[in-house]
């Protein structure tokens, strides 16, 4: 495997981490969704590149599914939901953006340290991929934790799942059926979450989860 293959794979994986940071920085819902679509697109490119490098044609199917569902279907669906919900378009944060970004950098450093140390004997491409994938997963979780708006939590969850796909394709030999079932479960999760969003909205006129907590009579 030549240096170019490795560099390009590295570029895509690093791009995913970078886009995760962009996701963290967004303060508008529509922009958030667009960036999420971009992340899914880069993920699809990365998966397709892996398919080419590993000579594994079934990964092209994964890439196709990623483009169709994550880059197109889910962002469009979320766009329509947001406009139909009629909530105001700002991302409500719990922790301010700058500390969040700093925490994100720390998490990336952590995942690098852990992964590079643990997977010492593995193939360098897989090592880098796994390290980046863990960063994406952690950043997605960070997003879920630091946002109080339900839509941005959904996006955090989906981007976490992007990290999982990246890890899965980096490691050779993941069966197609697993990937497809993961993709479909994500779609079903979206449907369920969408229904819940509308129910919450119907009841509380907002998708800010803070309202739910207030309703339960809890104070933070």
């Amino acid at each position: 495997m030549g240096g170019l293959y490795f560099d390009i794979a590295h570029l895509f994986a690093g791009g995913l981490v970078l886009i995760s940071f962009i996701l963290l920085y967004q303060d508008r819902l529509y922009a958030l969704l667009n960036v999420f679509a971009l992340q899914a697109f880069v993920l699809a490119l990365s998966v397709a590149w892996q398919a080419y490098v590993q000579d594994a044609p079934h990964l092209y199917i994964t890439a196709g599914i990623t483009i169709a569902f994550k880059a197109i279907a889910i962002p469009v669906a979320l766009h329509r939901m947001v406009s139909r919900l009629g909530v105001h378009r700002e991302v409500e944060t719990v922790v301010r953006l700058v500390p969040t970004m700093l925490a994100g950098i720390a998490l990336v450093a952590l995942s690098m340290v852990v992964m590079l140390r643990v997977t010492g004997s593995a193939d360098p491409l897989a090592r880098e991929d796994l390290a980046f994938a863990l960063s994406v997963v952690l950043l997605g979780m960070l997003m879920m934790v630091t946002r109080s708006n339900a839509v941005s939590q959904v996006v955090g969850f989906m981007s976490l799942e992007n990290g999982l796909i990246l890890a899965a394709t980096g490691a050779k030999g993941m069966p197609l059926v697993v990937e497809i079932s993961v993709a479909f479960s994500i779609l079903i999760a979206l449907i369920v979450i969408g229904i819940f969003l509308f129910r919450i909205r119907e009841r509380f006129d907002s998708v800010d989860l803070q309202v739910l907590d207030d309703y339960r009579g809890e104070s933070r």
């Binding site: 719990v94 979780m141 960070l142 879920m144 934790v145 109080s148 989860l209 739910l212 907590d213 339960r216 809890e218 933070r220």
Partner: peptide
């Protein structure tokens, strides 16, 4: 706890 706090615990 709230949902977000549970998530934070897991995280």
């Amino acid at each position: 706890l709230t949902i977000r706090q549970y998530l934070s615990l897991v995280f």
